[in-house]
Nucleic acid binder design. Structure first.
Length: 491
RNA sequence: CGGGAUGUAGCGCAGCCCGGUAGCGCGCCACGUUCGGGACGUGGAGGCCGCGAGUUCGAAUCUCGCCAUCCCGACCA
């Protein structure tokens, strides 16, 4: 019922922006490119954090915190890493302000110039590896499994709420291992965590695989990723896990003595997901009536709206509403009883629909007479009137059903928008007219990938893990290829 | 950083060509009637018209400069 609100059909990116703002998730701030995450949006992020944090802990990781600032000299040590991030770093050059002599305000005090400039972290590999050097001497100190929740800054040309902001929130894991095998295994463990999180919590089906060298993280040997498909047919990288080899260990001189008393560099991984997941969540499930949230991440899972004329009616309804609220709360379900007198039921219905609350319960005079309650679900917009008896179990069950339905809907959307093509003409046609994931043979060279990107704007999103290679010919160069890779236009 | 557009009430906009001291919708406040899908009536509050110069008796309106934001490209999670 959201009037004056764009539809996906009319203008997908406008729809996304309107949705994020109108649903109270975030807004643009006074600082260019930076957003304010509003309470409702932040509540969703906190639920994501809580779920992921537990998964990290369950796989043996601990949290720690490293500085926001990184000495410039640290940053320039790993060549590929520098190349990858240098163009988008914010730099702190001074540490003091003073009043302008002409009284026009505050100016930088030029006499307070830092001897060594500080970079605001775009990612923390360098400061962390410089620190790990002191923490690791022996194989007994390994593996070192650390995560940090932090903000980072990447000076982007163009920003969009959640999808790409100058400052964003994320978690970054940084681990050190005695062997290459162990480090690779760690990268895969995390990839599995991310996959599970996306599918089970966000109800977002993802493809997993390896990045092409072109899309790989600067400084990594291999980058593994989860990729999701948005409703406009564009792909969104939702998380990455990197096998870093010994690159950072060598640069920061992190060595350990093995059981055999041999000195060797440690093997490393790093991995992260960011507030970008919020964008993925919105774009994957929502519709023209507003947000659709999977119950597991919804700040409010159930809202109860009373319908009444007179105060004494409200009092009667409230008795039932509060009983239901208590019963649901006992089951660990987050419930809001919205008995505000300042808004009408119809207004509330629209509001909770727009903000994606999975289940709405309405109790009115009719229900009081019949011992019933109206149950409306956000994902299908279906309404039914149920007996009030045992409602908490029905609601609990329905939440699970909604979670599953949202996932299945996203999954079938992806299936319906995944195409396998064998010719260049077909490839161009699908990328341009249909979008989605396009599976095609590729000769494995950067040149071909770049040429395809140049002509179609599509990139290799991921190279799927496969145990049974099949022979084919590269759609672009015609050269032999032993597996199909996933192409798409991406966010 | 290139191309395009826009800055007027909390939000969305009109007014600008053709200069005369600011208006509409939503929202907000009060009261009353309403309340099962965004209610209605009556009354009210709220604006250095992005900033700075200039032209003019007079500028939201004309001229010049600046700033900011948004959209489209190149770069990126």
């Amino acid at each position: 019922m959201a009037k004056d609100f764009s539809t996906r059909e009319e203008n997908y990116s406008q729809w996304y922006n309107d949705l994020v703002i109108r649903a109270g998730l975030a807004e643009n701030s006074a600082v260019r490119g930076c957003m304010v995450i509003k309470p409702y949006g932040y509540a969703i992020w906190e639920k994501m954090q809580a779920a992921l944090d537990k998964m990290f802990k369950d796989t043996g990781h601990s949290n720690a915190y490293f500085p926001l600032f990184i000495p410039k000299s640290f940053f320039s040590k790993e060549a590929a890493h520098v190349e990858g991030f240098a163009k988008e770093c914010a730099v702190v050059t001074h540490y003091r302000l003073k009043n302008a002599e002409d009284g026009s305000g505050v100016v930088v005090d030029e006499t307070a110039r830092l001897e060594e400039e500080l970079i605001i972290r775009p990612t923390s590999e360098t400061i962390i590896w410089d620190t790990y050097k002191n923490w690791i001497q022996s194989y007994r100190d390994l593996p070192l499994l650390i995560n940090q929740w932090a903000n980072v800054v990447r000076w982007e040309m163009r920003t969009r709420l959640f999808l790409r902001t100058t400052e964003f929130l994320w978690q970054e894991g940084h681990t050190a291992h005695a062997t290459k095998e162990e480090a690779v295994e760690e990268a895969f463990t995390i990839l599995k965590v991310y996959t599970d999180f996306a599918e089970k919590w966000m109800a977002l089906p993802v493809l997993t695989g390896k990045k092409s060298s072109n899309e790989r993280f600067a400084g990594a040997i291999d980058t593994y990723c989860i990729e999701a498909l948005m409703q406009d047919g564009k792909a969104l990288q939702a998380g990455t896990s990197h096998f870093l080899g010994q690159n950072f260990a060598k640069v920061f001189d992190v060595k350990f003595l093995s059981k055999e008393n041999k000195l060797d560099y440690v093997w490393a991984t790093s991995w992260g997901v960011s507030t970008r997941l919020m964008g993925a969540l919105v774009m994957a499930h929502s519709d023209d009536r507003g947000l659709v949230l999977p119950p597991k991440l919804a700040p409010i899972q159930v809202v109860i709206v009373p319908i009444y004329r007179k105060k004494d009616q409200l009092a009667q309804i409230s008795v039932h509403a509060n009983n239901i609220k208590d019963a649901l709360t006992k089951k660990g379900i987050s419930v809001k009883y919205d008995d505000r007198d300042t808004y009408k039921p119809g207004w509330k219905f629209s509001e909770y629909e727009f903000t994606g609350v999975p289940i709405r319960l309405a109790i009115g005079p009719r229900d009081l007479e019949n011992g019933t309650i109206e149950v409306a679900r956000r994902d299908t917009l279906e309404k039914e009137v149920l007996q009030m008896t045992d409602i908490e179990n029905k609601v609990e069950h329905l939440l699970l059903q909604i979670q599953e339905n949202i996932f299945q809907k996203a999954l079938s959307f992806r299936d319906n928008n995944t195409f396998s093509v064998d010719s260049w003409e077909e490839f161009k046609d699908v990328i341009e007219h249909k979008g989605g994931f396009v599976l095609a043979y590729w000769d494995g060279t950067v040149e071909t990938e770049l040429a395809i990107k140049e002509e179609t704007k599509a990139t290799i999103r991921t190279i799927p893990f496969t145990h049974n290679p099949e022979e084919g010919k590269c759609i672009y160069s015609g050269k032999p290829s032993n597996q199909r890779v996933v192409f798409a236009k991406a966010y």
